[in-house]
Design a protein around this nucleic acid. Structure first.
Lengths: 244, 244
DNA sequence: ATGTCTTTGTGAACGCGTGCACAAAGATTG
DNA sequence: CAATCTTTGTGCACGCGTTCACAAAGACAT
């Protein structure tokens, strides 16, 4: 297939064809009217604009389970990223091979960054170490950080940080799951609970699962908040930890 | 701190206080005018609406590096998720403990799902196995899937899928990194390259790093696309693989 | 070479989310 | 109890992104 029309591409991606054309137009006029877009040329243009044609050296700091998984992750090299070094604060880790590469100690962080011309760092340390690591990375010349630690990093202007919270995705799924269960229970004839899912008796059964339903996980609050609960809360059930 | 105002909360979160109040209002009128929101009660209400007050059993399928990292990830249990089982297709993995839990074989997938009332599944398998695994999970009663495999899953209506692509985050960072370098080069006096970053000579130096700059990673295209390139492309450089 | 047909590129309208601004509500003080 | 002060809850307007719709451009057939 040498060329594609915006219509075909839009259908495949599940978006509007006009939006797709407008987005492409920001890259320049790479299409041919009456024909469409030359596939190979389009791929090249998008890749170039996205920075995929360059080889980006990255360092991973914190070689625990997640760090090791990231080091082994094949998707990175497929997209033009090269893991230049693995760094960990644990002296016992130093020299141990992970993903065919020896782990280096944090002491050499600055040296590693500058020798490899690294501008992107990945932080997979425990939450407590993340801020300090980010500061050292930035001081050594890193200007983009991918943060897997459950902390908000404060960084100077000009430094990009993206935070990935693996449990947030699960929370979003659980939220919809709860909604499904609530609607199901409402439709089954219980108390309607129009907008907010009931969260208690309504969800007696996991939808499609066996009888074992999710059960309350935490104790109800005591003290003044409990009073507040009784004041106008629907019914006393359970609070939970908001932060990670 | 028993209560918070929308103003304080908004400042801490870096958002507009009006938006925050409007968002809260969708949950109900839980604030007190002249005072603010009761912290503990607010936490409880949000937790409940988000489904955090329930204990959600999840299974992780595919215990490679990533699967093992997820199994060990502390953030899940902190948010009300409980890893009910680890499942892998490799017979050699069966019985081996990961994160203090024996890995079980794919053969028992359906049994595990139904016995634990699991409605959320995590797929951390290679891309090739993901679709098939998702079908078995769904058939067994799972209605929400968190997909780490680099494939688009096709699922029936009523099933939620969220895809996490770890390299996409890096791509976004690299994109901004390239923009920074492009602007820097433009400001330094080279050819302006107003909207699109130049991507070639302009990025001679990693910003802040040492002299070692990112270098071209792939070969230029040949054949008809190469002709197209020469037709109106800025200059021949390099294409790259778009899909993972 | 001329006409027709396909598909792009984009101006204009629509819709939605965000932010402003204020009235209502309740606490607090004298 | 009245007055004042704080903070919520929300109607309204602005701005941005998405979508529609169409003129311009180029391929292709005659």
């Amino acid at each position: 297939m040498p060329t594609v029309s915006s219509e075909e591409l839009a259908a495949a991606a599940g978006v509007n064809s006009a939006k797709l054309r407008k987005d492409f137009s920001y890259l320049g006029s790479y299409g041919t009217r009456g024909v469409g877009y030359d596939v190979e040329y389009l791929v090249y243009q998008i890749s170039r604009e996205l920075g995929l044609t360059q080889d980006w050296p990255v360092v991973i700091v914190g070689i625990g389970n997640l760090g090791a998984a990231l080091a082994n992750y094949g998707g990175f090299s497929a997209r033009g990223f090269r893991v230049a070094a693995l760094i960990d604060a644990d002296p016992a880790m130093a020299g141990r091979p992970v993903a065919g590469m020896p782990v280096q100690h944090t002491d050499d962080l600055e040296k590693i960054i500058s020798e490899n011309g690294v501008s992107i760092g990945v932080i997979a340390t425990p939450a407590g170490a993340a801020q300090q690591v980010s500061e050292r990375l930035i001081a050594a010349g890193v200007t983009s950080i991918l943060n897997f630690a459950p902390t908000v990093l404060s960084v100077p202007d000009g430094v990009d940080v993206r935070k990935v919270d693996l449990s947030i995705e699960l929370q979003i799924l659980a939220f919809h799951e709860q909604r499904k269960a609530g609607e199901e229970a409402a439709a089954a004839g219980s108390a309607p609970a129009p907008s907010a899912p009931s969260g208690d008796g309504g969800v007696a059964d996991a939808p499609g699962g066996a009888g074992a339903a999710p059960v309350a996980a935490v104790e109800p609050p005591a003290g003044r908040a409990a009073a507040a609960l009784r004041k106008n809360g629907p019914e006393g059930e359970v609070p939970a930890v908001m932060p990670a």
